[in-house]
C-alpha cells in the first residue's frame, strides 16, 4: 500500500513528461530517430549511393567518400555496392566507382523525383524552405514511376525546381544553363541569381537569413579573398566567398535586361512616396503569388503606402483603388520602381 504524497506525484509527472519530450520532440526526438534507422533498407542505401555518384561524376569516388558523405555504416555501404554491381548499376575502375548507363538513368530518375517533390512542397504546401530538402530526401525513395508522372502533371510539368535546378524529364532530357558561382563575377559585373544550393545546410540557412532570392539581379561591388560585396534591389549584401560560391548566377550582358538602380523592394518604399510595381520575385510561389497577382500587384500598377502599423508591420498599401495590408516577408518579394 502506498500513500499519496504531492512531491512524489509531481516528480513522477516531471519524469514522465521528460521521457515523452525526449522521445517525441519534433525532428530530434529519439522515437523519430529510431524509426528512421529502422526504415533504412537496401533500396534507400542504393539510391543514396547512386545520387552521390551522379552529383560527383567529375570526381573520383571511392568507398571512403561514400561513408563520409552518407553517414551509413561501412558494412551497409559495402553490401549496397555489392548489390549494385550485381544489378549492373556501377562498376569499379580500380579504387573508384563509376556509373553504368543504367545506373546513370536510375540516378537521373531519383534526381527528377527529388526535384519534383521540392517543387511540390514549394508550390502546394506551407513547409518552410529549409525543410523542402529533407522531406524530398525521404519522399524520393517512396515514389514510383506512376506517382512521379502524376506529381509532374499536377504541377504542370515544371522545368525547374525551387532552387533553380533543372528537373530532368521522364525521358531524361535536362535543361542546360551556363551558370557561374557568384564568387566568379568580377567587380562591376551584373548577374542574375538562378540557383541557390541547398547543400550544405549551414550555408544555405545563412543565405536564407540574408533574404537573398532567386531571380534577383545584382551588381558586384567588391570581390576578394575575404568577402564578396554586391548591390541588389536597393540593398547591399556582404558574404564570405565560400557562401557566395553556393549562389549561382547568369551573367547579364544585354543592356535591355539590366534593371535600373531605382528598382528596389517594396519594403524600401516610404510613406508619401509613390512607385510603380516592376514585378514579383520568383521567390514568391504558389497560392501566395497567385493571390498577390489577383489583388492587382502586377507590373505597371501604381502603389503607395496607405497606413503604417503601430507595430511597424504589416503595412497597408494602396493599389488599384483598394487598401491591402501585406507583411514584410511578402513585400520583400515585390519589386518596385521609384519615380
Amino acid at each position: 500500500m502506498y500513500t499519496y504524497n504531492p512531491i512524489y506525484a509531481l516528480l513522477i509527472f516531471i519524469v514522465v513528461s521528460m521521457v515523452i519530450f525526449l522521445l517525441f520532440r519534433p525532428n530530434r526526438g529519439l522515437f523519430w530517430k529510431i524509426r528512421s534507422i529502422y526504415r533504412i533498407d537496401d533500396k534507400i542505401v542504393i539510391e543514396d549511393i547512386l545520387k552521390q555518384l551522379y552529383h560527383n561524376e567529375a570526381k573520383q569516388i571511392g568507398i571512403n567518400f561514400l561513408v563520409n558523405a552518407l553517414g551509413y555504416r561501412d558494412s551497409t555501404i559495402i553490401s549496397g555496392i555489392d548489390k549494385m554491381i550485381d544489378g549492373n548499376l556501377v562498376y569499379f575502375e580500380g579504387e573508384h566507382l563509376t556509373l553504368t548507363e543504367e545506373g546513370h538513368d536510375y540516378a537521373l530518375k531519383i534526381v527528377r523525383v527529388h526535384r519534383l517533390w521540392e517543387r511540390y512542397l514549394a508550390e502546394k504546401t506551407g513547409f518552410d524552405k529549409s525543410e523542402w530538402h529533407g522531406i524530398a530526401e525521404r519522399k524520393e525513395h517512396e515514389t514510383d514511376d506512376e506517382e512521379a508522372k502524376n506529381l509532374a502533371s499536377s504541377l504542370g510539368n515544371p522545368i525547374f525546381d525551387p532552387h533553380g535546378d533543372p528537373i530532368p524529364t521522364s525521358s531524361g532530357k535536362i535543361a542546360e544553363l551556363d551558370s557561374i558561382p557568384l564568387s566568379g563575377l568580377k567587380v562591376g559585373d551584373i548577374g542574375k541569381i538562378i540557383n541557390i544550393d541547398d547543400n550544405p545546410e549551414l550555408i544555405y540557412k545563412q543565405i536564407l537569413a540574408e533574404n537573398i532570392h532567386i531571380g534577383s539581379q545584382l551588381k558586384v561591388l567588391e570581390n576578394n579573398t575575404t568577402r564578396v560585396t554586391f548591390y541588389s534591389e536597393g540593398e547591399e549584401y556582404r558574404l564570405a566567398p565560400i557562401v557566395a560560391a553556393n549562389i549561382k548566377v547568369l551573367k547579364v550582358n544585354t543592356p535591355e535586361e539590366i534593371l535600373e538602380d531605382n528598382v528596389i523592394r517594396l519594403t524600401g518604399l516610404k510613406p508619401d512616396e509613390t512607385a510603380i510595381i516592376e514585378g514579383i520575385s520568383k521567390e514568391s510561389r504558389g497560392d501566395s503569388r497567385r493571390r498577390l497577382l489577383d489583388l492587382g500587384f502586377v507590373k505597371g500598377a501604381e502603389i503607395s503606402i496607405d497606413l503604417v502599423n503601430p507595430f511597424g508591420e504589416p503595412t497597408a498599401y494602396f493599389v488599384k483603388g483598394t487598401t491591402i495590408a501585406l507583411r514584410d516577408d511578402q513585400a520583400r518579394k515585390i519589386l518596385i520602381k521609384k519615380d
Binding site: 497560392d287 497567385r290 497577382l293 489583388l295
Partner: peptide
Amino acid sequence: TYSLLSTS
C-alpha cells in the same frame, strides 16, 4: 472572389 484563376 478576386479572380477565377487560382484554386481556393
